[in-house]
Amino acid sequence: MRTVTRHLSLSLVLLAALSLAGCAPEPAPQASETTAPTDAPVFASDAEALAAATEAYAAYLAMSDKILAEGGNDPDRIRAFASQKLAEIEMEGYANFRSKGLKSVGESRFSDLILQDESPSDIAGLGAVTTYLCSDVSQVDVVDTNGVSVVADSRPDFTPFIVSFDLVSRDPVALIVASADVWEGAGVCT
């Protein structure tokens, strides 16, 4: 067993040495195809980061609306648009809809997306972009099986959120929603 391991590591070292030797003479090595971290900025401008965040949040919101409109069925569809952590939170909401037979009617909206932070240097792309935005559910109703609204009287139609995004692809740039937390600050929902 030990011999096998040693042989294996020896050959790996040899392989590495060979590949190194092979690469060395190249004057300008091309960017490799691996997922090696790069320091290049992800976004050329704040506007670009905002556009990517807007797109990602819109997609997340649309899918969430779709699942909620269908009573929380097939909830795994949200996973393509949200981080695992956020997806788990959303799953609980979907399960709640399913168990109570609730359906949402109408379209969620958002506005006033403001860039708070952009950290393209984060190697893993986690929290690459953080924004504030104003969530608008004024056009959304949630009804039970009898079609009676179950929306709480105290529900705010407009809720400020601080939303962070993870970078899941650099080329083309693609973001998913990492977290969406209620923001207590003023000035987001105008």
């Binding site: 939170i89 959303e90 979907y94 809809f97 009287d153 937390d181 209620v182």
Partner: peptide, 11 residues
């Protein structure tokens, strides 16, 4: 402390 969209909609 994230709030799910379901909870946002219900309030």
């Amino acid at each position: 402390g994230s709030c799910s969209r379901a909870d946002v909609q219900i309030g």
